[in-house]
Design a protein around this nucleic acid. Structure first.
Lengths: 345, 345
DNA sequence: TTGAAAGCGTTACCAT
DNA sequence: ATGGTAACGCTTTCAA
């Protein structure tokens, strides 16, 4: 059996109380004692049992992330990794751990209830909110501290959120393509009920309208952002009478399918057609001659993860405080690369 | 305050003992009683407090994953998501939760010690082993149950592992390119000290040698599998006097950089050059005319995650049992697509 | 078939 | 500045 508080205190000839206090930095313990305790603890590699500590303090020091299996591909989405990477960074700073629970789609609601009932977490982060997301009401009702990454159009009650300005990002990306001379710009978007997808679409439409360009609904495709989806939609659009000359892809993963379809069609990227998408930090390309155009929001997502996590911890520490929110501008990098848009055809 | 065992038992006019037994399926409780207890529990939404339960049973019902921050980009790697997705599926089946701990690179060892000392997890999964990975000895020494995803060449002591046959996969991919007529095949590999990278390289070399093709070291590049890396190496190789006609990329992410560099160079994929990489399930492309060639190992990785998790749980339940191991063949899909390799040039 | 009570390893309150 | 002890919420042993 490993060392515990009782053994450690016996070893030191002190009470458990004093040892505990010394280790937790309580001011009333004599400095000499604290030092002695600290050294003994180090020597024996003592760490308080987290279950016991949690039971005694009532805090789990754990943040929950619930992943519906339909969003399974989300975990595969680099953006998910970026977000989680940022969040875990913040958790580590405050001594929190991060827990993932995978649930069947129809069990998501009970998953939150259980997390709370089991007292397994001190709070949760809500990822990928849909329009009118019912989970927000549920969590408010449960009184489980949470912060949403993104927003949920239609929800009227208060909630804390951190979001990237998706609308503005896609507006700018679209404007950029228009500036390059493109007129037939396709949008490969995420599932329509996802809040971010709506905002991105709004940005796209807003840019087109501002420039007086007709919106062609057949150039707007929305579904789960898989590679297959990107491929099929692009293939179909390239077979149209007037195919798009540029494609704005809502996800790095679906963009892979987009590019595959372009390859298959025998077209050359950047000459016959332009693709613009979320991407890694591509500043390394900036000085290149034939730099592809792109938006770089991945680093913004990472930062969002950090901010969401901090906000959540803040809310856990100060329960009952009014909802907070924070809007982030995406770090956009729009490079010129594709030359003028293909004419006519 | 939420419902707990005490309140529930008072509500029922039974002892905590009986209620606990009823809920945990002990045989000695009368069926009528069990039913009554079960209904009341459902009604009040009672769930045992996981900290208290863990403290009483000595089991955390939690599996740990330690992520060194240098491997941070790993989380962004789709393969990481696939693996974790598979693992969490298995965890859920057995009632385990999944915990991530992010650590500074130099703190990784103490992270495991702490996880054990705090009794925060029942076992851990070791991901991304290097050659001669010191963590294996550490975990054996600590007696913390673990299973390695991958193997570690050079480690002589026993350990449980699940691995995909990386060597054979890359051997077959290389053979396939050779069959298409390619002679100058580049390998964009992961960090040399990673065990999987060595095995992949071995497979690549083995195929070249079997066909009597000279190995050109300048066509072999190895580093962290980022997009930037894939881009830079490809750009450099394309500027060589005798550039490669095919590129075998060890990661989907670096392959994105590879393709970017090819675009920049004004080359057309599948005509001027072929790229083959790990990828999603691309069976959807099978019937296409200009199907790109590829290997599909992502589904294998997912399955590996599931198997690793099951093996770990098995080991947690039966401590002291001899190490187990399991080798998986990657589900390879090698489609013909690129036509003959570019001649001369 | 049921119950009382002793743990599990902490923290925190109340004394001293 | 230190110690005794209750409490946290559950499981499990021992009795009945």
């Amino acid at each position: 059996m490993s060392i515990n508080l009782k053994k450690l205190s016996e070893e030191l000839g002190l009470s458990q109380t004093t040892v505990s206090r010394a280790l937790n930095g309580y001011p009333e313990v004599k400095e000499a004692t604290r030092l002695r305790v600290q050294q003994a603890a180090d020597k024996f590699g003592y760490r308080p049992n987290s279950r016991a500590k949690g039971l005694a303090t009532g805090r789990a020091m754990m943040i929950g992330h619930v992943i519906p299996s339909s969003t399974q591909h989300e975990m595969v989405n680099p953006v998910f990794g970026d977000f989680v990477g940022g969040a875990s960074e913040a958790y580590a700073r405050y001594g929190y751990d991060m827990m993932f629970t995978r649930v069947q789609d129809d069990t998501e609601e009970s998953a939150y209830r259980e997390l709370l009932a089991k007292r397994a977490v001190d709070g949760v982060i809500l990822q990928g909110p849909s329009v009118n997301d019912p989970r927000i009401h549920l969590l408010n009702e449960l009184g489980l501290p949470f912060v949403v990454h993104g927003r949920s159009t239609g929800v009227t009650e208060g909630y804390s959120w951190v979001d990237v300005n998706n609308k503005r990002s896609f507006e700018r990306a679209t404007e950029f393509l228009i500036d390059l001379g493109h007129r037939r710009i396709a949008l490969i978007n995420g599932l329509e009920q996802m809040d971010f997808a709506q905002r991105r679409r709004d940005g796209y439409l807003s840019a087109l309208k501002a420039r007086g360009i007709d919106v062609d609904p057949s150039l707007m495709r929305a579904d789960e952002m898989t590679e297959v989806f990107g491929h099929h939609q692009t293939r179909d659009m390239l077979r149209m009478e007037k195919p798009p000359t540029a494609i704005l892809a809502s996800s790095m993963i679906s963009a892979i399918g987009v590019r595959r379809a372009i390859e298959e069609a025998g077209l050359t990227m950047g000459r016959d057609i332009s693709v613009i998408t979320h991407d890694d930090d591509l500043s390394y390309l900036k000085n290149g001659q034939d730099v592809p155009i792109f938006t770089a929001t991945r680093s913004s997502v990472r930062k969002a993860g950090e901010i969401v996590a901090e906000m959540l911890i803040e809310r856990i520490h100060n329960p009952g405080q009014a909802p907070l929110s924070r809007m982030l501008e995406a770090e956009l990098v729009l490079g010129r690369s594709t030359g003028p848009a293909p004419q006519g055809k």
